[in-house]
């Protein structure tokens, strides 16, 4: 591990302007070390995907207001443009999408799609690029890779397509891989295979991964560290062990208990009451307070600061403020 963190996001704000204003990300801070695997957890609309897209500068510039800073290996990526932006995307940081059936171009073969990326980034010829593509398909363990190279996405199964998507994302050896719910669209058995594959490739390539998911089980399975997002910001962060053992934020606890493991038949399933906020105005108070079983009067008065209950941890909740913590 070197001294510069692989990724450093500070005070990131993303606002969508349109018929309806949405404050999607509100003052997000996040950092990731070289080769680290972080699980970014949250329900739909909490800003997980927006964070990833902001990282790749994929948000539509006309309708989006972004401020704050994002640094990858020390380089500011908010100022990148033109060729430098293109070589950053897919070269240094690349992304695996949720739905491989939609994220692959339907009228190009898998081989072409991988080779095209390799040719762009490494400036090598088509033949050499095809060899890289073949090599990548072998790395993600697609059976009979020579034949699959000439397949179109619709000729493959969902799991196979996701493997191909991973091969594509890793073909230029990125330092950071963004995985946007890569297993959500897949069958449970295939999910596990893909998770194991990602973990293995991460070790082999030594890259950092941000793994976005709404499934706490998946996050626990794959990551060393977990960050939980709610209403466009992180509410709790810590090592996976600590979070599982001793979740501090009421939202994290809610997520953990809303899980189906060890639930006897006939008992009532625990769910977090209420719905996430619409984020039409910039949050000035704790956004979880209206749904929080332990809310204090102070929660409605201002944004909670981060408390540090232990090494490598942070929690944005006033309950940590000593007074009411048990």
């Amino acid at each position: 591990m070197t001294d510069t963190p692989l990724l450093e996001i500070s005070d990131l704000n993303v606002r969508f302007d349109g018929e309806r204003t949405v404050h999607a990300i509100n003052g997000l801070n996040l950092s990731l070390g070289q080769g680290e695997m972080l699980g970014l957890l949250g329900e739909s609309g909490s800003g997980k995907s927006v964070t990833l897209k902001a990282l790749l500068r994929l948000l539509p510039p006309k309708r989006t207001q972004i401020d704050g800073s994002i640094r990858v290996n020390g380089a500011d990526i908010m100022t990148l443009s033109g060729r430098r932006l293109s070589s950053y995307r897919g070269g240094e940081v690349s992304m695996v999408f949720q739905e491989p059936a939609l994220a692959l171009d339907p009228v190009y073969t898998i081989g072409d799609q991988i080779a095209e990326t390799v040719m762009r980034h490494r400036g090598i010829g088509r033949k050499a690029a095809m060899e890289v593509a073949l090599d990548m398909l072998m790395k993600v363990r697609i059976p009979s890779p020579e034949r699959r190279l000439k397949n179109y996405p619709h000729e493959m199964s969902g799991g196979m397509r996701q493997r191909a998507m991973i091969a594509l994302a890793l073909s230029c050896r990125p330092k950071l891989l963004l995985a946007d719910e890569p297993t959500t669209a897949l069958d449970a058995t295939v999910q596990i295979q893909i998770l194991l594959l990602l973990r293995e490739l991460q070790r082999e390539f030594g890259m950092g991964i941000i793994f976005v998911t709404h499934d706490i089980g998946v996050a626990v399975e794959i990551s060393e560290r977990v960050a939980i997002m709610y209403a466009g910001n992180i509410v709790e962060e810590g090592s996976t062990r600590d979070i599982i053992r001793d979740a501090r934020h009421p939202y994290t606890r809610g997520l953990l208990s809303a899980n189906l493991h060890n639930v006897a038949k006939g008992t009532r399933l625990e769910a977090i009451a209420g719905a996430p906020p619409s984020l039409e105005t910039e949050p000035v108070t704790c956004q979880f307070a209206p749904r929080c079983p332990n809310a204090l009067p102070a929660c409605e008065k201002g944004l909670p600061p981060f408390f540090v209950p232990g090494p490598g941890r942070r929690v944005a909740c006033l309950l940590e403020n000593g007074a009411t913590a048990d």
Partner: peptide, 17 residues
């Protein structure tokens, strides 16, 4: 407006590609 177009930009292709 399809997802794969965003994915094409995400893998570093230029506008022309």
């Amino acid at each position: 407006s399809m997802d794969f177009v965003q994915a094409l930009y995400a893998k570093g292709l230029h506008r022309g590609d």
